[in-house]
Design a binder for these strands. Structure first.
Length: 479
RNA sequence: GCCCCCAUAGUCUAGUGGCCGAGGACAUCGCCCUUUCAAGGCGAAGACGGCGGUUCAAUUCCGCCUGGGGGUACCA
């Protein structure tokens, strides 16, 4: 029964990398029958975005990652952190620092000039106790800094990376409590993880270098540290392959708006840095819960590959029933201002139209473009009606024959349309292309589109005949 | 600069010393199907970064180099 948490800072919208972290965190909790908690780490008042927490929750919900506890806001738990900081000072693991931002800035510039690693020089750490007490009682502004041991090695175990150690002398005395009384991440997250009985800290690898600070803090408190797990980054992949050049960090909401299905995104993201160890690639969320394990997460960063995401999305879209697809696509058609009529919303002809494009759809936002000829008379050049290796005279002939056969046909279903037109083709001994290509071109105005029978059926007899007659007119004026 | 992490095809990955003359997926190319484009089926091309070790045997272990990523804030 593990307790895990996703702990984003509310500084903007949830990004793809954050969603993957949330997913892995969620999976660990679910597969143990444990608890997944959402904690908003809003301890930076400068970067705080008031809408961010809502956006993050919306994105998580859309993705299907429901949390069991929270959201908990750190800004409402200040006393916990202040008390913890005081405790640390009492234990000698932290100390008040009265250095001003200006002095710190100057100090770092000097260090950089001398080609030394920029870090706190320890001025207030060695301060005379009487002096410290005097400043404190005077109410001098100060922060609380971690007193990192000057010698020794801090070692910890990461589920993914294994044993990692740092020389304590390399670790800086970070600020734990800011002068405004807010904690920094270093203090807040570990205090909360302890108080909330978190068993697994799962976060991005950008935290790896500061992990020893946190381990030291757990030791100072005498608390048992949770299992640590750092996830490899998702990379943008600039400059190498042609397929990877326009990938970047993008917000989850934008994928939602572009018409990616949450299940497809989740499936894709799960495979970015994790694999089951065999050749399976399609996973429902439940299957992920069953198969996932942190031990199988890879150690190296993964480039975000949108082509593969599109493949997954198309694949998930193809599994939808037509009614499901209609519900999904409708908002995009409305957005595109298509004349949808007054009838029942997923009307039969819309379902037929959708069926004709389902195989070509990679994301929902492509639907208006793929379906436009069903809603608007197509504009095209007469030459489009004539396939290669044919001519206007021949096409006029086949079109007239097709038109006549179609006028006499009442059952406008794909199958009866097919047998009727194949009958025409066979009787006249024509090549099927000379009959079918011009019909399809006349109906869609496109070089590439769904097949003639499907379009005929979806458009219906009346509208089909109008378009075919118009095409014939075009052919006449051509000659 | 210093510290940490990483390294199988364009991309995501399988692989824990011999089963690898390296498996799967996306993308690419070809063929089939076919009125077009997709989808689908079949097939092709494509990788163990380099150099040294260890070993009877290294993609797998070790070191160095190179390359990539991250950190170095009163941001997370």
């Amino acid at each position: 029964m593990f307790r895990t948490r996703f702990a984003p800072s509310p500084t903007g919208e949830l990004h793809i990398g954050g969603l993957r972290t949330a997913l892995f965190t969620y999976l660990v909790a679910r597969q143990s029958g444990g608890t997944f908690l959402l904690r908003i780490e809003d301890t930076d008042r400068k970067r705080f975005d008031p809408h961010s927490a809502d956006h993050i929750q919306e994105a998580l919900r859309w993705a299907g990652l429901e949390w069991d506890e929270g959201p908990i806001f750190q800004s409402q738990r200040l006393p916990h952190y202040q008390q913890a900081a005081a405790e640390l000072v009492a234990r000698g693991a932290a100390y008040p620092c009265f250095c001003t931002p200006a002095r710190l800035d100057e100090m770092r510039q000097e260090q950089t000039r001398q080609k030394q690693p920029p870090r706190y020089d320890g001025r207030c750490r060695g301060m005379d106790l009487a002096e410290r007490q005097r400043l404190l009682t005077d109410g001098a502004p100060h922060t609380i800094r971690q007193a990192v041991p000057e010698t020794g090695i801090t070692t910890f175990h990461d589920i993914i990376y294994g044993t990692i150690s740092f020389r304590n002398e390399e670790i800086d005395d970070s600020v734990l409590l800011k002068s405004d009384g807010f904690p920094t991440y270093h203090l807040a997250h570990m205090v909360d993880d302890h108080l909330m009985r978190i068993t697994h800290v799962i976060r991005g690898e950008e935290w790896l270098p500061s992990a020893p600070k946190h381990v030291l803090l757990y030791q100072a408190f005498g608390w048992e540290a949770p299992v640590l797990c750092h996830l490899p980054s998702i990379l943008a992949g600039g400059g190498q392959g042609k397929l990877s050049k326009r990938h970047g960090a993008v917000s989850v909401i934008s994928y939602m708006q572009e018409g990616y299905l949450p299940d497809a995104l989740i499936n894709f993201l799960a495979l970015l840095g994790w694999s089951p160890g065999d050749d399976r690639e399609f996973f429902s969320k439940d299957e992920l819960v069953a198969a996932f394990s942190l031990e199988k997460v890879s150690h190296s960063g993964a480039v975000f590959n949108r082509e593969k995401l599109d493949f997954f999305n198309g694949s998930y879209l193809r599994r939808k029933t037509l009614r499901e697809l209609a519900d999904l696509v409708l908002p995009y058609l409305i957005e595109a201002d298509f004349p949808l009529g007054d009838g029942p919303r997923p009307d039969p002809s819309l379902l037929l139209a959708l069926a004709s494009v389902q195989d070509r759809l990679r994301k929902l936002s492509e639907a208006p473009e793929l379906l436009s000829f069903y809603f608007h008379e197509p504009l095209y050049q007469a030459a489009l009606l004539i396939p290669k290796k044919s001519n206007a005279a021949e096409i006029r002939q086949t079109m007239n024959a097709s038109l006549e056969a179609l006028r006499n046909l009442d059952d406008f279903t794909s199958s009866s349309l097919e047998s009727t037109l194949r009958g025409v083709i066979e009787r006249q001994g024509w090549k099927s292309g000379t009959v079918l290509w011009p019909i399809r071109a006349a109906l869609t105005g496109r070089e590439a589109s769904p097949g003639a029978f499907e379009v005929l059926a979806a458009l219906g007899k009346e509208r089909s005949l109008v378009r075919l007659e118009r095409a014939l007119d075009k052919l006449e004026t051509m000659a």
